[in-house]
């Protein structure tokens, strides 16, 4: 679980809570917001994030005996949440998706320009907007919105591979995909994400 510590990024918060163990009645006050933000970043829905952390607390309560204090209590609870997030996407991606084939390629599908950018959908000049920190909050909000608009299966692969930094094999085990399939999905997801951001942001 070591990588999880690095993943959480906030080293200070981790240090402060390293050896802290609090009673379940205090969990919501101590860990609630952290877990909520962790989940929200990965599911882009406040409702789902709330459900996931409720499940997490209840599972932690049931598994209280299995906590050995080898990691901080927060790290332990976060690893339970992480498992809940993976399960969430596993369930989501096994659902039959009617719109799975709606990907409209931004490339010419035939002719002399086959597989080259369609003029009207090629990346536009972002005019240095990325260099201005003023725009960053807005960019992140739009990016989260665009992430939430990805087809379920793509979103599942994308979040687990990119946000959770899982190995491709592990992602495929959960979601049910092949290695080459995974790269095709990531490619399409990134094409759609980029275009969605551009349309809403510029």
């Amino acid at each position: 679980m070591l990588f999880l510590l690095a993943e959480m990024g906030d080293a200070k918060l981790h240090k402060d809570t390293e050896r802290k163990v609090v009673q379940p009645a205090q969990w919501v006050n101590e860990y609630g917001d952290f877990l909520y933000m962790y989940a929200y970043a990965r599911v882009q829905s406040k409702e789902i994030a709330e459900d996931l952390i409720q499940d997490t607390f209840l599972s932690a309560l049931k598994g209280l005996d299995s906590f050995r204090g080898e990691s901080s209590q927060l790290t332990w609870i976060t690893s339970i949440l992480r498992r809940k997030i993976i399960d969430h996407y596993r369930k989501m991606s096994t659902k039959k998706e009617i719109s799975a084939s709606r990907f409209a390629s931004p490339f010419h599908e035939e002719g002399t320009h086959e597989d080259h950018w369609l003029q009207e959908r090629a990346p536009k000049d972002w005019h240095g907007k990325t260099e201005d920190p003023m725009h960053q909050d807005e960019f992140q909000k739009i990016m989260q919105l665009c992430l939430s608009l990805l087809p379920d299966k793509w979103k599942s692969v994308f979040i687990l591979k990119v946000m959770e930094e899982m190995q491709s094999d592990d992602v495929c085990k959960e979601i049910g995909c092949t290695a080459s399939n995974l790269w095709v999905i990531l490619h399409r997801a990134r094409l759609q994400l980029r275009e969605c951001i551009e349309n809403k942001w510029l």
Partner: peptide, 30 residues
């Protein structure tokens, strides 16, 4: 985009927080 994705996955960079109502609900469940 990748740099921003890295930023948003860190809980410290998220600006959402539980409301008091949500907290009460969770405490009751526990």
């Amino acid at each position: 985009i990748s740099a921003q994705l890295k930023k948003i996955k860190d809980p410290a960079n998220q600006s959402v927080a539980l409301t008091d109502e949500q907290k009460e609900k969770l405490k009751t469940a526990i």
